[in-house]
């Protein structure tokens, strides 16, 4: 199961989320867009760390992972990821 979302995040910037999941667990995810986060390279680790997370907890895992990695994120909120997953579900895909 897979799907993607493109839209304005509540945080203010454009979010492009692509998610693949099996049995409600994320198997692949890509978080792209024109938001800001630093240190930038740590974001790659944050994104990789979302694999294996329950798809319903994507936002929470993103928020706690960012804090643990010392990332400052601007223009994108954890809840934006949950809203994107909900939009993907509503469009018919069921990640």
């Amino acid at each position: 199961m897979k799907g993607s979302f493109v839209g304005k995040a509540k945080g203010g910037k454009l979010l492009r989320l692509s998610v693949e999941a099996a049995g409600g667990v994320v198997t692949a995810v890509s978080v792209r867009g024109d938001f800001f986060a630093h240190p930038e390279e740590r974001f790659d680790e944050l994104e990789a760390g979302l694999v294996g997370c329950p798809v319903d907890e994507l936002g929470a895992r993103f928020g706690s992972g960012a804090a643990a990695l010392g990332l400052t994120v601007y223009g994108l909120l954890p809840e934006d990821l949950d809203a994107a997953v909900a939009a993907i579900r509503a469009s018919g895909a069921t990640p």
């Binding site: 492009r16 792209r32 867009g33 024109d34 938001f35 986060a37 930038e40 974001f43």
Partner: peptide
């Protein structure tokens, strides 16, 4: 392009 953007996007 910004660091977090996809080139092909």
């Amino acid at each position: 392009i910004g660091y977090f953007q996809g080139l092909e996007d």
